[in-house]
Simulated assay, not measured.
Amino acid sequence: MKYGYARVSTTDQDLFIQRDALKAAGCDNIREEKQSGTTMEKRSELKLLFDFLRAGDTLVITRIDRLARSVGDLQVIVRQLREKGVALQATEQPIDTGTAAGKAFLDMLGVFAEFETNLRRERQMEGISKAKAAGVYSGRKPSIDVERVRALKAAGKGPSEIAKELKIGRASVYRVLGEPT
């Protein structure tokens, strides 16, 4: 059985191009998610897909960067697929995990995907530094109302009660109040 996996990084991106390519490749079941590919965390659809995959199945993706953005994650995924006896195919890249040349090509693509991610991060940090120097960027807006935390403490509430009422972590309350955790 062929299973497809489509992923985009942000909720405003669309999956229809990947979905169409996976259908054209003969995928019987396609799992989709809108989640960053920089880590394996929070990728519930990929984890669910791994539960379905059995020996003899094929996992189809459009490009290797839809599956992993780092060489480490890519190697973990490929190792898990190999252990299950599952083949990996990409619709836009000549990937065949059954040959030495295909494995080498897959590893090279992983290196380039990680390189691209690192370049993007560097450009983002440069842009933030420039914006901070120009006084345009001040970072994320505070999510905790410090005065409200102090007022609730003055009203006799404890850190756990304050955290629950404001829907924030107890450690955040301690930080605001300057108390040890």
Rank of each mutant, 00 (worst) to 15 (best):
E45V: 01
T39Q: 06
D65P: 02
D107P: 00
E126F: 14
L53Y: 03
G158Q: 04
D51K: 10
V136W: 07
R170S: 05
A87V: 06
G98K: 09
G127C: 00
L46Y: 03
G26C: 05
L53M: 07
V136E: 15
V78Q: 07
L88W: 00
V176T: 10
V8Q: 06
T91H: 06
I30A: 05
Q75Y: 10
P94K: 06
A68M: 03
T10P: 03
A87T: 09
D145A: 12
F52R: 08
G102D: 11
P142G: 07
R120C: 12
R120V: 13
I128R: 08
T181G: 14
L59Y: 00
G110W: 02
R121K: 10
L46A: 00
A21K: 14
A171K: 02
K164I: 09
A21D: 06
R31K: 14
K153H: 15
G4V: 11
A87C: 06
R175T: 05
K47I: 11
E116A: 11
L15M: 06
S36E: 11
M1I: 11
R175P: 10
K141P: 01
K153T: 05
K164D: 10
Q35T: 15
A90C: 09
G85H: 04
Q13H: 08
L22P: 00
A25I: 09
P180W: 07
I30C: 07
A24R: 14
L109K: 12
E165Y: 08
K47G: 11
T11G: 11
V60Q: 02
E161Y: 07
V111Y: 11
K34S: 01
K47R: 11
K42S: 13
M40D: 12
T38E: 15
M40E: 13
G158C: 02
Y137L: 02
R170V: 14
D14R: 12
T117W: 15
I77D: 01
S129H: 14
V176C: 09
A55R: 13
V60E: 00
L106I: 05
R43F: 08
P94C: 02
L177Y: 03
D12E: 14
L166T: 00
F112A: 05
S172I: 05
A155P: 06
S138R: 12
V86E: 01
I168G: 08
L74T: 00
M1W: 05
T181H: 03
V86Y: 01
G56D: 02
S143P: 03
L109G: 11
S143V: 10
L48K: 11
I77V: 09
G4P: 06
Q18H: 08
G4A: 07
S138P: 01
Q93C: 02
V78H: 03
I61F: 04
E41H: 13
L74K: 04
E116T: 07
E41Y: 08
G102Y: 05
G178E: 01
V76P: 00
A155Q: 13
G85Y: 03
Q80M: 12
V86P: 03
R170C: 08
K164Y: 08
L88H: 02
Q124N: 09
A163I: 09
D51L: 09
